[in-house]
Design a protein around this nucleic acid. Sequence first.
DNA 1: CAGTTTTCTGTGTACACGCACAAAGTTACG
DNA 2: CGTAACTTTGTGCGTGTACACAGAAAACTG
Lengths: 349, 349
Amino acid sequence: MKVRIKDIAERAGVSTGTVDRILHNRGNVSETAREAVDKILKEVNYKPNIHISGMSLKRKYRIIITTHIVFPGEYWESIYQGVDKALAEYDNIKVDLVICHYNQYDIYSCRNVYSQIATMEADGVIIGPTFKEETIKLTTELEKNSIPYIFVDSMMQGTNPLAYFSSDHYTCGYLMCKLLTSITPENSEIGILQAERIGDGSANTTILRKKGVNDYLNEKGLSNKLHRIPFSVLEPERTDLLLSKFFHTYKNIGGIVVPNSRGNVIADYFAKNDIKNIRLVCVDITEPNARALKEGHIDFLIGQEPERQGFMAIKTLIEYLVYRNPVKVDNFVPLDILTKETIDYYETI
Amino acid sequence: MKVRIKDIAERAGVSTGTVDRILHNRGNVSETAREAVDKILKEVNYKPNIHISGMSLKRKYRIIITTHIVFPGEYWESIYQGVDKALAEYDNIKVDLVICHYNQYDIYSCRNVYSQIATMEADGVIIGPTFKEETIKLTTELEKNSIPYIFVDSMMQGTNPLAYFSSDHYTCGYLMCKLLTSITPENSEIGILQAERIGDGSANTTILRKKGVNDYLNEKGLSNKLHRIPFSVLEPERTDLLLSKFFHTYKNIGGIVVPNSRGNVIADYFAKNDIKNIRLVCVDITEPNARALKEGHIDFLIGQEPERQGFMAIKTLIEYLVYRNPVKVDNFVPLDILTKETIDYYETI
DNA sequence: CAGTTTTCTGTGTACACGCACAAAGTTACG
DNA sequence: CGTAACTTTGTGCGTGTACACAGAAAACTG
């Protein structure tokens, strides 16, 4: 049987108004009444009917989400799709979503946006972090105003978020290396695509994945040689040149692992030059990556369910703000292993 | 802006009562009124607030779910978990869930249960099919009474379900074979665990997976020899004997594919006899399979999201019955590829 | 200091929210 | 007058919230 506020009020010998005031602690309640109601509340484990409560809720919640700029088909777009999905699910609750993009290649843009956020009145903030120091500065500011914040994509050490939703990037790299070595001949040389570093100690995720790759080789006592493939994000026209140079230098490459979302760069090169004997393992289901997987240029593609990350971030924040539900801080999202055969059936949430 | 019944009534120049009667087609509506309202409805794409409508809904829905008997930790248990999850999500709608188990090894038990179901009054039926003829007989009976039914786990040809939720078993087999051959030395012999057939042309899923395995080998022009490993579900004490016999007969087995959920049988044998040089690819995240994967005896485990199947079955049925939402008939659930590294982060829905 | 007014705390109540449904009242038309 | 085709009105669902109102304590009176 569903227990209502009315039932609790009856059993405690008070009115529904009093119970409501206790539930939402807005004061004006005597000690005796509070005790009586608390006792019943513990007994019955009351859960409000969230759909109806939303209906009569007048309060508006402002949630800020800040990530770097997002282009269509990119990994980050899915995070926003998850956000939208969650908001649609809670369409009874009035939330005012403020989106603040910064340029991930421009630390000043990030500082700018973050300092603006710090001055805004918000009920909660969702952060897709890039720059370490800037993020820590923002979060300390938020903590000062006791505004809860949640990380997506990756957790930033030295902060105290309400929760974070990210994949285990270290294990991701470890796994990619395992997959690659299991489908390449023993001792074949391995290429690893790494963009030139931009800004400060950013690209946290890539570093962790790289470490996973190395650790796998060491742990298993494998002696495959690892060669870094240089690549410039800002000057894509140089890509072809850099790649040809690489493949001319190293003739015995058996497989390539790409610890960032730009695996399609390699796949495109393979397609153009009709290279078929090099295995390729990549991460992130961007539109070009998915296409390359289907066309057979990528062998394994690792997905990290960005949609679920966005979805859970909003969901957690709302559950916390509106219903004061307890929250689990550490949340690792699944690492999905996709192949040509399975990607068509793949859709998150 | 949320559009309400009241808004529609205003714009159509009728009362809310009329709109209501049209929405729930309970007659007593003139052609002119119907047209006017239908026009507005199309314009605004009206969606009732399902939570609130559920609240004031007085009707009760009876949903029958019939599968074979389920043991804890088994694949099928998850289907029921998904069912529960969906019912919890629609807790405003009064549904009376009737669970009818039959014994999958006893065709008479199935006939018995099915004929009972055919006589019950129900608003919808969810079927986890085993026996072909019996299932077709049941579904024709249901169609006679125009009771919608949904398949989970696998679709049965020759029926007209409202929808089905299943994985693509053929592709599953195809994929398993691809994975296995990609991690075993070229031309190594392959074992395939197949239980002795019980009942009639059952185990539809296994047959399809087997076909996928064969087709992969043929398509890729691979010449790996395939050996059937016999195995009796009903007499597990014979397993050890059968397996020793098999591995003594065939000394060059490089990998094994298990197209049914009993992969743990092989894994246990490997563990007991300290066999490490044979790769193993299995399907279904049962408790013992998951354990074997973590312990390293299974290399790849394919999951078919049973929880989502149960969840979607209930969700679809409710959306169809209560809100008359259009329904997609063919629904393939993702094929999840799991390894030791990823299973800990894996959870469906 | 008794008597009156003001303030302050609790407390209960009424209503709104959007929908389904039912009963009773109102047209228009044959 | 009867009936089809409405409209009007009201109720219930569970919750949040404004508001009125109680009773008591505090602050003023003469």
